[in-house]
Computed example of a mutant assay.
Amino acid sequence: MSEEDYRNLLDTRARSPWRIAEAAVARRRRNLLEERDRLLIIAADHPARGSLGAGNRPFAMGSRVGLLERLCVALSRPGVDGLLATPDIVEDLLLLGALEGKLVIGSMNRGGVQGTVFEFDDRFTAYDTASIVRMGLDGGKMLCRIGLDEPATADTLESCSRAITDLASHGLVAMVEPFWSRRVDGVIAHDLSAEGVIRSMHIGQGLGATSAHTWLKIPVVEDMERVMSATTLPTLLLGGDPGIAAEQAYAAWRDALRLPGVRGLVVGRALLYPSDDDVAAAVDTAAAMLEVA
């Protein structure tokens, strides 16, 4: 992103906001699965929950200019199929022309702000189905944290169920990211055992009046063959933030991508903020894994 691009973006935001809708209508779209049957989606919806850290940098994502520059690099690399993000980021990238021919998945529930007493309250504060349809996006993603001691979980389950049903009525993907979770010393922790992930998958895939357009987004954990036997739904692997353990994470991704039912990767910070800051190289490494798989 050049300085001129940045200035034009600021000016358009202030003077011509209607151009966002025009860019959405004019955007060249694509089929969900084309030549390959594996997808590489770049995720950028963490900032909307106040989660700005990557690796050992607690405010890595604090600069919107820096994030947009990294996203433009990532989306320009061969083998990258699309973006998962909140409206603010999607709209910036639409104005920058970075989403032509890409899949765009809108992040829907960002209400559980990181570190708050209400973090389990994953209410829908970003995209809804109507706006996803209006903007010509390809689906919606929802976080579904299941806390046994958290009353807010009931509302999350109901809201996710409604969103899945609504998206399916338009033939759009509902990307469900389930976690079996609890608070440990005041901080939300996910059960990343095979048993914990399997429990969350069964609840997530049972939501909504139909699962015809539901995809799962799950973490890579030990015993992934057993984990993947828990579903027949298309499943994308959550990249997470491996920090200094990037090579171990990459090895786990490679193994999991070979399993039946796994349809690709959804990765954000691991590719946008690698330890050496070489975004292009990190994205190319992930894309090469999908080619091998």
Rank of each mutant, 00 (worst) to 15 (best):
R7F: 12
D11V: 08
D11R: 14
D11T: 10
R13Q: 11
A14C: 08
A14Q: 08
A14N: 06
S16D: 08
S16P: 01
P17T: 00
P17C: 00
I20H: 01
I20F: 01
E22C: 04
A23G: 02
A23V: 03
A23R: 13
V25A: 15
A26R: 14
R27E: 00
R28C: 10
R30N: 00
L32I: 06
L33S: 03
L33K: 08
E34K: 10
E34T: 14
E35H: 14
R36I: 11
R36S: 15
D37K: 12
R38Q: 13
L39R: 06
L39G: 05
I41G: 04
A43Q: 04
A44D: 02
A44E: 03
A44K: 04
D45L: 03
D45G: 09
D45P: 07
D45F: 09
D45K: 01
A48F: 09
A48Q: 11
R49P: 00
G50P: 11
G50L: 08
G50N: 07
G53D: 14
A54E: 03
G55F: 10
N56P: 06
F59N: 15
A60P: 06
M61C: 07
S63E: 05
S63K: 04
S63T: 10
V65I: 10
L67A: 01
L68N: 01
E69H: 08
R70Y: 05
L71P: 05
L71F: 03
C72E: 06
A74E: 02
A74G: 05
L75N: 04
L75H: 08
V80R: 14
L83S: 12
L84E: 09
A85T: 14
A85V: 14
T86Q: 11
D88H: 13
D88T: 14
V90I: 13
V90S: 08
E91W: 12
E91I: 11
D92R: 11
D92H: 12
L96V: 04
G97H: 05
L99D: 00
L99E: 01
E100R: 14
K102A: 06
K102C: 12
K102G: 10
L103V: 13
V104I: 13
V104T: 06
G106W: 07
G106I: 01
G106R: 06
M108K: 10
N109H: 11
G112R: 00
G112K: 01
F120W: 04
D121Y: 05
D122M: 15
A126Q: 15
Y127V: 14
D128Q: 14
D128R: 15
S131L: 12
S131W: 12
V133M: 02
V133G: 01
D138F: 11
